[in-house]
């Protein structure tokens, strides 16, 4: 089973690196926001895998809260960007 966790964490790590590449490259602000949002989802996924590894559900509240905060944060930044770029 440990090899399964190694593979899963490896894949999630690769996904995280690719996402960071998009954060660095941009080119627009929206692309970066999108990439950060994806990174939050990857972190949530990683935490879930960590829980599966230890077989203890200690981070469940953390997962829910991080997912919701990521959503709220992304929404507010998107609205901000939309307004700023529209009236430029």
């Amino acid at each position: 089973m440990s090899i399964v966790f190694a593979i899963t964490f490896g894949l999630l790590g690769v996904a995280g690196l690719l996402t960071m590449l998009r954060i660095v490259r941009g080119p627009r602000t929206l692309d970066r926001i999108l990439a950060v949002d994806v990174l939050v989802v990857l972190i949530v996924a990683g935490t879930a895998v960590g829980m599966a590894m230890s077989s203890r559900g200690i981070y469940i509240a953390l997962i829910v809260v991080v997912a919701l905060l990521g959503f709220v944060g992304t929404i507010s930044v998107v609205r901000l960007v939309e307004r700023r770029e529209e009236y430029r």
């Binding site: 399964v4 899963t8 894949l11 990439a35 994806v38 989802v41 996924a45």
Partner: peptide, 14 residues
Amino acid sequence: VSGALFCVIGAWGM
């Protein structure tokens, strides 16, 4: 593993 694969595919597409 399949979930992680979907995550990688999404990141690759991005």
